[in-house]
Protein backbone atom coordinates (compact mmCIF):
# COMPACT_ATOMS: atom_id res chain seq x y z
CA UNK A 1 0.00 0.00 0.00
CA UNK A 2 1.44 3.40 -0.91
CA UNK A 3 1.91 5.65 2.10
CA UNK A 4 -0.36 8.65 2.38
CA UNK A 5 2.40 10.71 3.94
CA UNK A 6 6.14 10.36 3.67
CA UNK A 7 8.80 12.58 5.14
CA UNK A 8 12.57 12.37 4.86
CA UNK A 9 14.85 14.15 7.31
CA UNK A 10 12.14 16.77 7.59
CA UNK A 11 13.10 19.80 9.67
CA UNK A 12 11.80 23.25 10.45
CA UNK A 13 13.73 25.99 12.15
CA UNK A 14 12.32 29.16 13.68
CA UNK A 15 15.16 31.59 14.00
CA UNK A 16 17.87 29.50 15.64
CA UNK A 17 15.58 26.98 17.26
CA UNK A 18 14.62 23.71 15.60
CA UNK A 19 10.89 23.14 16.05
CA UNK A 20 11.19 19.80 14.30
CA UNK A 21 14.18 17.92 12.99
CA UNK A 22 15.27 14.67 11.41
CA UNK A 23 11.71 13.57 11.01
CA UNK A 24 11.57 10.52 8.79
CA UNK A 25 8.15 8.92 8.72
CA UNK A 26 5.76 6.92 6.65
CA UNK A 27 2.06 6.87 7.32
CA UNK A 28 -0.01 4.25 5.51
CA UNK A 29 -3.40 5.19 4.07
CA UNK A 30 -6.66 4.57 5.86
CA UNK A 31 -5.30 5.08 9.37
CA UNK A 32 -6.20 7.29 12.22
CA UNK A 33 -2.84 8.49 13.42
CA UNK A 34 -2.34 9.94 16.86
CA UNK A 35 0.45 12.47 17.20
CA UNK A 36 1.34 12.63 20.87
CA UNK A 37 3.85 14.72 22.72
CA UNK A 38 4.13 17.49 25.27
CA UNK A 39 3.37 21.08 24.33
CA UNK A 40 6.11 22.56 22.19
CA UNK A 41 7.31 19.19 21.00
CA UNK A 42 6.76 20.08 17.35
CA UNK A 43 3.31 18.60 16.73
CA UNK A 44 1.84 21.78 15.27
CA UNK A 45 4.93 22.30 13.17
CA UNK A 46 4.67 18.80 11.76
CA UNK A 47 0.98 19.21 10.93
CA UNK A 48 1.52 22.63 9.37
CA UNK A 49 4.32 21.21 7.25
CA UNK A 50 2.03 18.39 6.16
CA UNK A 51 -0.76 20.82 5.37
CA UNK A 52 1.62 23.05 3.46
CA UNK A 53 1.09 26.00 5.77
CA UNK A 54 4.83 26.00 6.43
CA UNK A 55 7.72 25.28 4.14
CA UNK A 56 10.38 22.92 5.51
CA UNK A 57 13.82 24.24 6.41
CA UNK A 58 15.40 20.92 5.55
CA UNK A 59 14.38 17.57 4.17
CA UNK A 60 11.19 16.88 2.31
CA UNK A 61 7.62 15.82 2.76
CA UNK A 62 5.26 14.18 0.30
CA UNK A 63 1.57 13.94 0.98
CA UNK A 64 -0.67 11.92 -1.32
CA UNK A 65 2.04 11.92 -3.93
CA UNK A 66 2.58 15.68 -4.04
CA UNK A 67 4.24 18.54 -2.25
CA UNK A 68 1.81 20.03 0.31
CA UNK A 69 -0.12 23.12 -0.83
CA UNK A 70 1.48 22.86 -4.26
CA UNK A 71 -1.48 24.26 -6.17
CA UNK A 72 -5.24 23.89 -5.80
CA UNK A 73 -5.37 20.19 -6.70
CA UNK A 74 -3.05 19.38 -3.83
CA UNK A 75 -4.89 21.70 -1.43
CA UNK A 76 -8.16 19.97 -2.23
CA UNK A 77 -6.79 16.62 -1.07
CA UNK A 78 -5.84 17.72 2.43
CA UNK A 79 -8.10 19.07 5.11
CA UNK A 80 -6.55 20.95 8.01
CA UNK A 81 -8.23 22.02 11.20
CA UNK A 82 -5.79 24.32 12.96
CA UNK A 83 -5.25 24.58 16.69
CA UNK A 84 -8.08 26.33 18.56
CA UNK A 85 -10.26 25.67 15.51
CA UNK A 86 -10.25 29.21 14.09
CA UNK A 87 -13.43 30.52 12.48
CA UNK A 88 -14.45 34.00 11.37
CA UNK A 89 -16.18 35.38 14.49
CA UNK A 90 -18.28 37.91 12.59
CA UNK A 91 -19.53 35.47 9.96
CA UNK A 92 -22.52 33.26 10.63
CA UNK A 93 -22.52 29.49 10.44
CA UNK A 94 -24.30 29.71 7.08
CA UNK A 95 -21.68 32.22 5.87
CA UNK A 96 -18.97 29.69 6.67
CA UNK A 97 -20.70 27.03 4.63
CA UNK A 98 -21.10 29.49 1.78
CA UNK A 99 -17.42 30.36 2.05
CA UNK A 100 -16.51 26.68 1.90
CA UNK A 101 -18.80 26.12 -1.07
CA UNK A 102 -17.29 29.07 -2.90
CA UNK A 103 -13.69 28.16 -2.27
CA UNK A 104 -13.77 24.39 -2.79
CA UNK A 105 -14.77 22.84 -6.10
CA UNK A 106 -15.31 19.49 -4.38
CA UNK A 107 -17.53 20.93 -1.64
CA UNK A 108 -20.17 18.51 -0.36
CA UNK A 109 -23.05 20.85 0.48
CA UNK A 110 -25.31 18.00 1.55
CA UNK A 111 -22.77 16.73 4.05
CA UNK A 112 -22.24 20.19 5.47
CA UNK A 113 -25.94 20.93 5.80
CA UNK A 114 -26.72 17.57 7.38
CA UNK A 115 -23.93 17.83 9.89
CA UNK A 116 -24.94 21.34 10.91
CA UNK A 117 -28.55 20.19 11.27
CA UNK A 118 -27.65 17.15 13.30
CA UNK A 119 -25.40 19.18 15.57
CA UNK A 120 -28.31 21.54 16.13
CA UNK A 121 -26.35 24.62 15.09
CA UNK A 122 -28.36 27.66 14.08
CA UNK A 123 -27.18 28.70 10.59
CA UNK A 124 -27.92 32.34 11.40
CA UNK A 125 -25.72 32.31 14.50
CA UNK A 126 -22.48 34.24 14.34
CA UNK A 127 -19.49 31.96 14.76
CA UNK A 128 -18.11 34.28 17.43
CA UNK A 129 -21.02 33.33 19.68
CA UNK A 130 -20.56 29.56 19.42
CA UNK A 131 -19.28 27.48 22.32
CA UNK A 132 -15.86 25.89 22.00
CA UNK A 133 -17.39 22.55 21.14
CA UNK A 134 -19.71 24.02 18.54
CA UNK A 135 -16.88 25.98 17.00
CA UNK A 136 -14.75 22.86 16.79
CA UNK A 137 -17.64 21.04 15.14
CA UNK A 138 -18.07 23.86 12.64
CA UNK A 139 -14.37 23.75 11.81
CA UNK A 140 -14.55 19.96 11.48
CA UNK A 141 -17.59 20.28 9.22
CA UNK A 142 -15.66 22.65 6.97
CA UNK A 143 -12.71 20.27 6.96
CA UNK A 144 -14.92 17.31 6.07
CA UNK A 145 -17.17 18.98 3.52
CA UNK A 146 -14.29 19.79 1.24
CA UNK A 147 -14.00 16.02 1.00
CA UNK A 148 -10.26 15.66 1.53
CA UNK A 149 -8.51 12.31 1.48
CA UNK A 150 -6.39 13.21 4.46
CA UNK A 151 -7.62 15.26 7.38
CA UNK A 152 -5.11 16.86 9.74
CA UNK A 153 -6.31 18.11 13.10
CA UNK A 154 -4.12 20.08 15.48
CA UNK A 155 -5.14 19.60 19.12
CA UNK A 156 -8.80 19.57 18.13
CA UNK A 157 -10.13 18.56 21.54
CA UNK A 158 -7.64 20.23 23.87
CA UNK A 159 -9.95 23.06 24.83
CA UNK A 160 -13.18 21.07 24.93
CA UNK A 161 -15.06 19.75 27.94
CA UNK A 162 -15.35 15.96 28.17
CA UNK A 163 -18.78 15.80 26.58
CA UNK A 164 -17.86 18.04 23.66
CA UNK A 165 -14.62 16.07 23.32
CA UNK A 166 -16.51 12.83 22.99
CA UNK A 167 -19.02 14.29 20.56
CA UNK A 168 -16.21 15.66 18.44
CA UNK A 169 -14.40 12.32 18.29
CA UNK A 170 -17.67 10.51 17.58
CA UNK A 171 -18.31 12.75 14.60
CA UNK A 172 -14.76 12.37 13.43
CA UNK A 173 -14.75 8.58 13.67
CA UNK A 174 -18.07 8.36 11.89
CA UNK A 175 -16.66 10.46 9.08
CA UNK A 176 -13.63 8.19 8.89
CA UNK A 177 -15.92 5.23 8.16
CA UNK A 178 -18.26 7.10 5.87
CA UNK A 179 -15.74 8.91 3.70
CA UNK A 180 -12.77 6.55 3.99
CA UNK A 181 -10.58 9.30 5.34
CA UNK A 182 -7.09 9.07 6.64
CA UNK A 183 -6.65 11.20 9.73
CA UNK A 184 -3.73 12.59 11.69
CA UNK A 185 -4.71 14.26 14.93
CA UNK A 186 -2.48 15.58 17.65
CA UNK A 187 -2.86 15.91 21.38
CA UNK A 188 -0.64 16.39 24.35
CA UNK A 189 -2.77 13.80 26.13
CA UNK A 190 -2.66 10.21 24.97
CA UNK A 191 -5.97 9.51 26.68
CA UNK A 192 -7.73 11.82 24.20
CA UNK A 193 -6.57 9.72 21.29
CA UNK A 194 -6.04 6.24 22.66
CA UNK A 195 -9.34 4.81 21.50
CA UNK A 196 -9.51 6.74 18.29
CA UNK A 197 -6.18 5.99 16.73
CA UNK A 198 -4.64 2.84 15.35
CA UNK A 199 -1.27 4.36 14.58
CA UNK A 200 0.85 6.40 16.92
CA UNK A 201 3.66 8.91 16.60
CA UNK A 202 5.40 10.07 19.76
CA UNK A 203 7.11 13.41 19.40
CA UNK A 204 9.22 15.03 22.12
CA UNK A 205 11.88 17.71 22.01
CA UNK A 206 11.27 18.31 18.30
CA UNK A 207 12.12 14.74 17.35
CA UNK A 208 10.09 11.66 16.57
CA UNK A 209 10.74 9.06 19.28
CA UNK A 210 8.65 6.20 18.04
CA UNK A 211 6.07 5.66 15.35
CA UNK A 212 4.02 2.70 14.24
CA UNK A 213 0.85 0.65 14.42
CA UNK A 214 -0.55 0.67 17.93
CA UNK A 215 -1.02 -3.09 17.92
CA UNK A 216 2.44 -3.74 16.73
CA UNK A 217 3.89 -1.33 19.24
CA UNK A 218 2.07 -3.14 22.02
CA UNK A 219 3.12 -6.55 20.73
CA UNK A 220 6.80 -5.66 20.49
CA UNK A 221 7.30 -3.81 23.76
CA UNK A 222 7.64 -5.60 27.06
CA UNK A 223 8.38 -4.78 30.64
CA UNK A 224 10.96 -7.19 32.04
CA UNK A 225 11.69 -7.44 35.71
CA UNK A 226 14.12 -9.72 37.45
CA UNK A 227 17.36 -9.90 39.41
CA UNK A 228 19.66 -6.94 38.91
CA UNK A 229 21.86 -7.11 35.85
CA UNK A 230 23.81 -4.85 33.55
CA UNK A 231 21.78 -3.51 30.64
CA UNK A 232 24.49 -4.47 28.15
CA UNK A 233 23.77 -8.11 28.72
CA UNK A 234 20.64 -8.46 26.65
CA UNK A 235 20.22 -10.32 23.36
CA UNK A 236 20.95 -8.25 20.26
CA UNK A 237 17.32 -8.11 19.14
CA UNK A 238 16.19 -6.52 22.39
CA UNK A 239 16.52 -2.76 22.54
CA UNK A 240 16.33 -1.09 25.90
CA UNK A 241 13.98 1.85 26.04
CA UNK A 242 14.28 2.55 29.75
CA UNK A 243 15.98 0.71 32.57
CA UNK A 244 15.55 1.15 36.31
CA UNK A 245 17.89 -0.55 38.73
CA UNK A 246 17.24 -1.09 42.41
CA UNK A 247 19.69 -2.90 44.73
CA UNK A 248 18.71 -6.34 43.71
CA UNK A 249 16.20 -5.81 40.96
CA UNK A 250 16.17 -4.44 37.44
CA UNK A 251 13.12 -3.31 35.55
CA UNK A 252 13.65 -2.80 31.85
CA UNK A 253 11.32 -1.76 29.10
CA UNK A 254 12.50 -3.25 25.84
CA UNK A 255 11.48 -3.44 22.26
CA UNK A 256 11.91 -6.93 20.90
CA UNK A 257 10.61 -8.41 17.71
CA UNK A 258 10.87 -11.99 18.94
CA UNK A 259 9.64 -13.58 22.17
CA UNK A 260 11.54 -13.07 25.43
CA UNK A 261 13.13 -16.42 26.15
CA UNK A 262 15.26 -15.69 29.22
CA UNK A 263 13.46 -17.49 32.09
CA UNK A 264 14.91 -15.22 34.79
CA UNK A 265 12.82 -12.29 33.51
CA UNK A 266 9.21 -12.01 34.42
CA UNK A 267 7.58 -10.45 31.37
CA UNK A 268 4.55 -8.23 31.47
CA UNK A 269 2.69 -6.34 28.78
CA UNK A 270 2.65 -2.59 28.58
CA UNK A 271 -0.34 -0.40 28.17
CA UNK A 272 -0.12 2.21 25.44
CA UNK A 273 0.28 4.85 28.11
CA UNK A 274 3.22 3.03 29.72
CA UNK A 275 4.82 2.77 26.33
CA UNK A 276 4.44 6.45 25.51
CA UNK A 277 5.71 7.44 28.93
CA UNK A 278 8.71 5.17 28.53
CA UNK A 279 9.72 6.94 25.33
CA UNK A 280 9.18 10.32 26.92
CA UNK A 281 11.30 9.30 29.92
CA UNK A 282 14.01 8.10 27.66
CA UNK A 283 14.14 11.44 25.98
CA UNK A 284 14.38 13.18 29.32
CA UNK A 285 17.30 10.95 30.31
CA UNK A 286 19.30 11.60 27.20
CA UNK A 287 21.02 14.63 25.85
CA UNK A 288 18.47 16.31 23.68
CA UNK A 289 20.89 16.96 20.88
CA UNK A 290 21.91 13.39 20.41
CA UNK A 291 20.54 12.33 17.06
CA UNK A 292 18.34 9.60 18.45
CA UNK A 293 17.13 7.77 15.39
CA UNK A 294 13.42 7.45 15.32
CA UNK A 295 12.25 3.93 15.56
CA UNK A 296 9.76 3.35 12.84
CA UNK A 297 7.75 0.21 12.72
CA UNK A 298 6.10 -0.33 9.42
CA UNK A 299 2.53 -1.36 9.65
CA UNK A 300 1.89 -4.71 8.08
CA UNK A 301 -1.53 -5.99 7.34
Amino acid sequence: MTPILQSQELGKKYGRRWALRDCTLEIPAGRVVGLVGPNGAGKSTFLKLAAGQLAPTSGGITVLGGRPADGPAQLAKIGFVAQDTPVYPRLTVADHLRLGAGLNPGWDAGLARQRIERLGLDPAQRAGGLSGGQRAQLALTMGLAKRPRLLLLDEPVASLDPLARREFLQGLMEAVVEYELSVVLSSHLLSDLERACDHLIVLTGSRVRVAGEVERLLATHHRLSGPRREPGRLPADQHVITARHADRQSTVIVRADGPILDPSWSVSHLTLEDLVLAYMDRQADQHTDEPARAITLEGRR
Partner: peptide, 15 residues
Protein backbone atom coordinates in the same frame (compact mmCIF):
# COMPACT_ATOMS: atom_id res chain seq x y z
CA UNK B 1 -22.86 -1.29 11.50
CA UNK B 2 -19.26 -0.25 12.00
CA UNK B 3 -20.34 3.34 11.53
CA UNK B 4 -22.96 3.06 14.28
CA UNK B 5 -20.53 1.56 16.75
CA UNK B 6 -17.85 4.08 15.91
CA UNK B 7 -20.28 6.98 16.20
CA UNK B 8 -21.48 5.73 19.56
CA UNK B 9 -18.18 4.85 21.19
CA UNK B 10 -15.88 7.31 19.43
CA UNK B 11 -13.40 4.54 18.71
CA UNK B 12 -11.26 3.67 15.77
CA UNK B 13 -13.21 1.90 13.01
CA UNK B 14 -10.44 -0.67 12.62
CA UNK B 15 -11.10 -1.75 16.20
Amino acid sequence: TVKDVVARLAINPNT
